Simulated assay, not measured.
Amino acid sequence: MKRSAFLLAALGAFAGAVHAQSAVTLYGLIDDGFAYVNNVGGHKLYELSAGNLQASRWGLRGSEDLGQGLRAIFTLENGFSPNTGALGQGGNMFGRQVFVGLSSDALGTVTLGRQYDSVVDFTGIFMAADQWMSYYGAHPGDLDNMNDTLRVNNAIKYKSPTYGGFTFGGLYSLGGIAGQFNRNQIWSVGASYYAGPLALAAAYLNVKDPNFSFFGNNPLSSTTGANMSSRVYSGYASAKTQQVITAAASYAFGAATAGVTYSNTQFKDIGALAGLPATGRGGTAKFNNVEANFKYQITPALVLGVAYDYTKGGGVNDATYHQVMLGADYFLSKRTDVYANGVYQHASGTDSTGQQAVANINGLAASSTANQVVATVGIRHKF
């Protein structure tokens, strides 16, 4: 009896020590609301709209202390619709992100898996749609991916420690096709600097065969047809390369914060991928985007925001998009908030389809006219 009791006590002590060295956390959020759209294909739309401020999700993240400031880490994150229960990201079980890696206090973090690119990590967080605004307020079609619509499969990622407010990182995705090293290749780099009220960031993203490697990397994606649906760029599905350059800055003064973002997005060598839309075949479609945003913390529980976004097409198109955004977010507690926001977009010129440009707010089907308005109210609960 004494011997058995001793063994049980020793095993219990060992289990406690292991538990103290590792941790797994279950987390998530549910965001749902009601949306009104004045024009979708010529008709008004009333619907429940999920994942407005943040997409609904649940996930597991964990770490194991390996000693001397080194940790093994992992994240599994699922996206879903609270209105239907359907999986997000085209039916991926862990479509939002899933990775494993090592993190060192001195050397930084290396992870492997399905992950966000450097544009998302470094500059996306400065835009209104990543703060107090819904995803409807992303830049038209989220053409620069600053609102993290798309993830990167088969990615190797590095992020440095912070050195005096400066952080940098990069990502590389292997195409995985024998004999064609550059096919479906994706890579990005970025950096940020924070000094008191001032924040600065920049990032670069380069995507080969974007219709398949970036827009078409989910289970329900087409392996032969077009996966780029927004009229802002759907006519460029046959482009060989998508290139995105971004920069952002913000400055906080008292309860207010002003921010600005810039992106240059190009779809190059249109027509290189056979059998796909190729408006402006052989050329390059260019988009310059500038957003200015402002938010004010009225009380610790209430924030108000306003933003203006301008997108100008060039190269093989001359489409122009003006977008105005308003939003309010009120926190009932640390984990629960209610919100209201609205977006107005006006389009002009000729878009990627070669036709008169029509308004096409991110996440919606196109309007039948040059104008489109969406208004949303909702609730978000984190757990």
Rank of each mutant, 00 (worst) to 15 (best):
F294T: 00
A285R: 10
T320G: 03
D309P: 08
G349I: 02
T320W: 01
Y236A: 12
L364I: 00
Q297N: 11
K334Y: 03
V244Y: 00
S333T: 15
T257D: 01
G235N: 13
Y308E: 00
S229L: 08
A359E: 06
N293D: 12
N293H: 07
Y339S: 09
N362L: 06
G254W: 06
K286Q: 15
S348G: 14
L326P: 02
T246N: 10
A285W: 04
Y236W: 14
V338E: 06
A274N: 13
R281Y: 01
F287Q: 07
Q242G: 02
L302R: 07
V232H: 10
T241W: 03
A258T: 13
G354E: 12
M325F: 03
G254K: 08
G354P: 14
L326A: 11
D329S: 09
Y321F: 15
A256K: 06
G342Y: 04
K240R: 14
G327L: 00
A292I: 15
I298V: 15
A272K: 11
Y339R: 12
T350D: 06
L302S: 05
N360A: 14
G314I: 10
Y321N: 14
Y344G: 03
N360Y: 08
Q242P: 00
L302F: 04
A319H: 09
Y296C: 08
Q356E: 02
T311L: 13
R281D: 11
L302N: 08
V290G: 06
L364Q: 12
A301N: 14
R281S: 14
A274L: 12
T353Q: 10
V338L: 12
A258W: 02
R231V: 09
G254I: 12
D329F: 02
T320H: 11
L276Y: 01
R335K: 15
V358H: 15
A285L: 07
I245E: 02
L332T: 00
T241D: 14
A255T: 09
A249E: 10
S229P: 09
K268C: 01
G363Y: 14
D318E: 03
A307Q: 03
N288L: 05
F294N: 03
S230M: 07
A256P: 00
T299D: 03
Y296A: 04
T353C: 06
G235Y: 11
M325E: 13
A272P: 01
T265V: 12
A285M: 07
A239K: 03
F287G: 00
Q243R: 15
V290A: 09
A248V: 11
R231D: 05
G363F: 13
A272G: 07
G271I: 10
A292L: 15
R281V: 13
A357T: 04
G315I: 13
G254S: 11
T241M: 03
G314F: 09
T284A: 04
L304A: 15
Y233T: 08
N293C: 07
Q356L: 04
D318Y: 02
G315P: 10
Y251P: 05
A272Y: 10
V244E: 07
S333Y: 07
I298T: 11
G305P: 02
S230H: 07
F294D: 01
G349E: 10
A255Q: 13
Y296P: 10
Q242L: 14
D318S: 09
S234G: 03
V343M: 10
N360R: 04
N341F: 04
N264T: 00
S348E: 13
S263Q: 05
